[in-house]
Design a protein around this nucleic acid. Structure first.
Lengths: 108, 108
DNA sequence: ACAAACCATAACCATTCGGTTATGGTTCGA
DNA sequence: TCGAACCATAACCGAATGGTTATGGTTTGT
């Protein structure tokens, strides 16, 4: 799976434009940089840089096809963020004395 | 409820020191700025500023008590992040449901 | 009463960030 | 073949970020 540094994931998603790009890729599927640029409302180089940041977090993958590059979302890369949030789930379960009941279903 | 701007939540948690402070408050419960400063490894003003950012995201609440200020985590403020993550895939559905259930019990 | 402790804010600094325009490398279409 | 389209990178810029030290306001202990 090669999980990315969690910090990269949090950082990448801290920017609204990057979140919007990720959402768009998730909703509409694979898209070219050109299409994403029309969508994002910023310049093409800006989009390319955002995609680079998302790539560093493993949140997107790209596929070269002639002169265009297709990007697609990789929602599995959200795992570090979910893992982090899960700490609080564990904490709360413990706190509410529901630990054992839930632990059974923890591992998928 | 008074849910904070989701952007504030993402931004606040994008910094590792801030995440560490939030984690510490969650694990150990209410703490003074003094205690958090010893924990964080940065200066007291730096901690105060981080706490202000977390406050803007509603991730912490504070209580003045004489000359010290006690901060505590407000995990329910993670809700905007969970809402956002909730968009992604049936694969994660179960984990979200469990987490959200726990969150609901936090704030009746 | 007063010095010390605790905290927040101000002032400052270096770095990072998010944007731009400029440029160059491929690749496609006519 | 050759101009145009697509994309990434470079170069640059202002603003935001994360840290520092300095300062001042309360509150506490002696």
């Amino acid at each position: 799976m090669a999980q990315a540094n969690p910090n990269f994931v949090f950082r990448a998603l801290a920017d609204p434009t990057r979140r919007a790009l990720f959402e768009e890729l998730t909703r509409q599927g694979e898209q070219t940089v050109h299409a994403l640029t029309r969508y994002a409302g910023v310049s093409q180089p800006a989009v390319s840089k955002h995609l680079t940041v998302l790539k560093r977090a493993h949140l997107v993958r790209h596929r070269r096809d002639g002169r265009q590059t297709h990007y697609r979302a990789e929602p599995a890369a959200l795992a570090p963020m979910l893992d982090w949030l899960d700490q609080y789930g564990a904490f709360w379960r413990e706190r509410f004395d529901r630990l054992e009941k839930v632990l059974e279903r923890m591992e998928p």
